[in-house]
């Protein structure tokens, strides 16, 4: 039985009709062509699918699409504005936190969620904040520095 839902997506009101089994990630990628969030494992282990639900990071692959009804979803595409990259995104670029880039959207979402809860996180809090997001290229060092750099601003 399809479910009708309305929600705010990257600042704009949208609606969709979804099967109850559909994951939020599939809704975003397949219906709205927002492919920034990635399917890395489908089991909630890698964090590549992370998006902000009411400004808090959730795993797109495990969150049912219907759960966003009436709420606000922000994806990596919604982090930047017409003025350009957000301070966080710019820090990821400048600090060399991006190599293959596949984990980047999820990593930025996790960082954005952390910075909202804790605007001046300690290095230890940053590490914990990124714990659920896997990266195979960078060794995380530049990512941790990128979040610190935002913190410094």
């Amino acid at each position: 039985m399809p479910v009708k839902l309305s929600f705010t997506l990257n600042g704009r009101p949208v609606s969709a009709e979804v099967e109850p089994t559909m994951a939020l990630l599939e809704l975003l990628r397949e219906r709205f062509d927002l492919t920034g969030a990635k399917l890395g494992c489908g089991e909630g282990e890698c964090g590549a699918c992370a998006v902000l639900l009411d400004e808090e990071a959730v795993l797109g692959c495990l969150t049912p699409a219907f759960a966003v009804d009436g709420r606000t979803v922000r994806t990596v595409e919604g982090l930047s504005s017409s003025e350009g990259l957000s301070a966080l995104q710019q820090a990821f670029v400048s600090e060399g936190a991006i190599q293959c880039g596949f984990c980047t959207p999820g990593m930025e979402i996790a960082a954005a969620s952390l910075l909202r809860q804790e605007p001046r996180p300690t290095p230890e809090q940053i590490r914990r904040g990124l714990e659920g997001n896997l990266c195979r290229c960078t060794g995380y060092v530049a990512m941790i520095e990128a979040v610190e750099a935002v913190n410094d601003d």
């Binding site: 990628r29 492919t35 920034g36």
Partner: peptide, 19 residues
């Protein structure tokens, strides 16, 4: 020098094969 494609990757614009 930041990676040339880093801004496109940072904003989620880049399309990988699965996209």
């Amino acid at each position: 020098v930041p990676k040339l494609d880093a801004p496109a990757k940072a904003t989620g614009q880049v399309r990988y094969l699965s996209d």
